[in-house]
């Protein structure tokens, strides 16, 4: 049996918070290793690793350039070219921060790549989260591939009519307009139709709802979630107390 989606969410969230609060390089590296291992075991690493790399590589490069070359607060100068000074403090700041962000991002991505969205939505509604939030979440995740496909179709249609994207800002803006206007008008039109249909089915009403999807959870999961949240809160509290001294 799979874990309850809220348990995995609590685990990912508290891992991200605790790693940020601890700010301890070995812990960050351990979390990174564990996250990669978990996704490999779950069979999601093929999709997860490229997505994570697309976010983390520019971020890490940006941090390395920023703090590696320019860290006015650093004292131990390792190399210097003109205004750029490579300092040991800057490099260690960049490394620590990059590891910590990688750990938090990977922990959260492992959750979002492994969770079943219908289960998550059903679990959220069962816990009293407003049905509209669940609707927005589920609707966005299912619209995303549909709209990406639609944009692709519009681009093909415009290219068939002679659209060539040339260099230069004006050409790009014109190309953007030719693709965005049909896309947005169609989407707003669709949304209006959908709103009427949903309204007719009592979407706007308040009151109890019946869910036909039952998400089972083991008896130990609710106390375990509570424990995870308490651990995250404790980590934050300890960090704030240490900072206050």
């Amino acid at each position: 049996m799979r874990l309850h989606p809220l348990t995995t969410l609590a685990a990912a969230g508290s891992t991200a918070v605790i790693t940020t609060a601890a700010a301890y390089l070995p812990l960050s590296l351990a979390v990174i290793t564990a996250a990669v291992g978990l996704s490999a075991r779950g069979g999601t690493s093929r999709r997860l690793l490229p997505a994570a790399a697309a976010i983390l590589v520019p971020l890490a490069l940006s941090l390395l350039v920023l703090h590696g070359l320019f860290f006015p607060e650093g004292d131990t100068v390792l190399a210097q070219w003109g205004p750029a000074r490579v300092t040991a403090e800057g490099l260690s700041f960049a490394l620590n921060r990059a590891a910590q962000l990688c750990a938090a991002v990977l922990a959260l991505l492992v959750f979002s790549f492994s969770v079943s969205v219908p289960d998550l939505v059903a679990a959220l509604s069962a816990k009293g989260v407003h049905g509209r939030f669940a609707f927005v979440l589920a609707s966005t995740l299912s619209l995303l591939p549909a709209i990406t496909f639609r944009l692709e179709r519009i681009r093909q249609a415009q290219e068939a009519r002679g659209l060539v994207i040339r260099r230069g800002l004006l050409h790009r803006a014109a190309a953007f307009r030719l693709q965005a206007v049909p896309l947005v008008s169609a989407l707003v039109e669709d949304a209006a139709t959908r709103a009427a249909a949903l309204e007719a089915r009592g979407f706007g009403g308040t009151g109890p709802r019946t869910s036909y999807r039952d998400v089972p959870e083991r008896p130990w999961e609710p106390p375990f979630r509570m424990l995870l949240l308490l651990a995250a809160a404790a980590a934050v509290a300890v960090r704030l107390l240490l900072a206050g001294d």
Binding site: H130, R132, F133, A192
Partner: peptide, 20 residues
Amino acid sequence: LPTLPTSTVVLIPVALVLNI
């Protein structure tokens, strides 16, 4: 979120996808 009319709530996912 609970105060918005349905026509707006339905537009929000579309807006989110456009942002992304």
